[in-house]
Structure formats: structure tokens, C-alpha cells
Amino acid sequence: MTLGSSAVAAETLEVGVDPELSDAAESSRRHGRTPGQIAWDRLKVDKVAIVCAVIVVFFILIAVLAPLLVKLEGETLNAFHPELINRRNTLPTIGTTAQHWFGVEPRTGRDLFALWAYGAQPSLTIGFLAAVSSTVVGIVMGLLAGYLGGIVDRVISWVIDFFLSLPYLLFVFALVPIVQNRVGGGRILTAEETSSLRFWVLLIILILFGWIGLARLIRGEVFSLREREFVQAAKVIGVPTRQILVKEILPNLVGPIIVSASIAVPGYIAAEATLSFLGAGLVEPTPSWGRTISVASGGNFSAYPLHLWPPVLGVALLVLALSLLGESIRDAFDPTTRR
């Protein structure tokens, strides 16, 4: 059968159905959409969300293709080029060239494009890993506190209040060397080992401080959900607690969870950049935008601003796009907004 005749067959089939019936089927399908589907349909027509998603995908591609792009440029990460450095003032003798797309680093002569492209990797990895993990921890804590109540709730709520009144940036500063010692077992490590250890330490600390908000939110929601009839009914017919939590309560919280996770990602990326900038984050040789910004804003800034701008624009654009995307997702899930 040819393509044309099948289309005709479909058309006749369509005509054959009673128009009123097909309308009814259509509308029942529309009413049957889940909140997730509604949100997705709204997101697909949101221009801001689309532009932001394109920017995010661009940076993900940069991160994934970093080795390929750097090879295309004809460079390697962390290769020193002392011949491109002016010996007297330690500034590079070149700007952007075909060989070095973003120039080279003052003093060491490392290729800045390689540092930039590879720098997107830890940013995005930490952002997404921390968001997923802290969301899971937040869900579990919130569900337990909200559903079990009593002593469990009091302990978890107290921990939440305690964390909220901590000066967390200072605490993170203090914790970085301590967690590093505990995880590293106090051995003397090579630069590579310290660097990859720091990555995990940073991730652990971000998760430690990151679950609080979602846990509070979920706890409050579960408090009201557990008194609803469908949960009471499930309880009465003897559904085990674990199943009530996962099958009855959790599906009602998908919206807030997705919104909270999507807003968390840019927060973690900014936190990684901030901590690395301040010296409590990633260390050499793992490339990091935050650390490059810190180095580039030093004495050489006015003479060689090319060092500063790519990581600044990178982190600013990526975090901005992810935040606005998060807000669009929030709006898409919010039935009171009309867009």
C-alpha cells in the first residue's frame, strides 16, 4: 500500500466517526491530563523558557564536547606555554588567535579556552548532582517528619531550625578542610587526589545544607495531605505506610518537587563558583570558573581583561538561564498564573 492511499483511508475513517463523539473523546482526553502534562504544554509555548533551555543545552554541549573542542583548537588542558609570556610583566604576548581562541593565562601561558570549556564540566556536574541528591534527602526527611509526626517530626524540625540559624557560608568554610581530612583519611595526597577529593567534599557539603528548604515544604504539604480522605481510606484498608507515602502522597507533590529541584540547580552552580572564588571550593588542577575569576580579578585585570570575561559570562549566563527556566517551570505548574 502506498503512502497516499493510507492517508486517504485515515481521512475516510475520520469522517466516518460521529463528529459529536469525537469531540467528547477529545475533551475527555484534555481533562485527563496530569499536572505534569499541563505544565509541559505550557512550557513548550513559553518563549523565555525556550531561549533559556537553548542556552543551557549550549553549555551542556560545551561541557560534554570540551575534549573534542579543545582538540579542534589544537591544544590540551593545562599545557604550559612560557614562550607566549612576556618575561618582564608576566602578561601574555598574544590576544585571541586561531591557536588560542580566548588567549592564554598570564604567568603560566595555559590556554584559556581549554580552561573555560573544561570549567563547564564541574559546574554542571555539581549543579545537577547536588540538586538531585538534596532533593531526594529533602523528600525523605519531609515525608518522614510530616507523616510520622511526633518525636520524628520534632527532631527533624529542630534540625531544620538549627540549620536555618547557622551562618552557613562560615560553616562551609570551616567544614571544607575538616571533611576533606575525614574523607581523605589524613594521608598526604597528590595534587590530583586533593583536587578530586575536594570535588566530592564540596558536593557533600552542598547537599548537607541544601535539603532544608524542600524538607520544610514537603513537611507542610504532607501535614495537610495525610488528613485527606484518600489517605485515610488507604490507611483503613491496611495499606503499609511505605506504600501510602510512595503511592498516595508522593504523586501529589510532583509539582513542588520538580519546581524546587529546577530552582536548586542554578543555586548550586552559583555556590560552587562562589566557594571556588573564595578559595574553599575546587582546587588545581580541576578547572573551575570561580577560581579562574578569582585569579583573573587580581593585579593583571586592567592589563588583560580577556582572562576574566569568558568565565564571568559563562557562569552569569548559565546561572541566569537556569534560574529563569526554573521560574518558567514554576509558573507552568502554578494554576493561578495565566500566560
Binding site: 542554578p266 552559583a270 562562589t274 575569576i293 552569569a316 541566569l320 521560574e327
Partner: peptide, 14 residues
């Protein structure tokens, strides 16, 4: 919205 979303270190540093 835009200035609130860009990481604070970037704005302050520039």
C-alpha cells in the same frame, strides 16, 4: 529578576 539571578560574586566583582 535578571540581577537577582546572576551570581552575586559576578555582579559585586565587576
Amino acid at each position: 529578576q535578571v540581577f537577582g539571578a546572576i551570581p552575586y560574586i559576578v555582579v559585586a566583582l565587576l
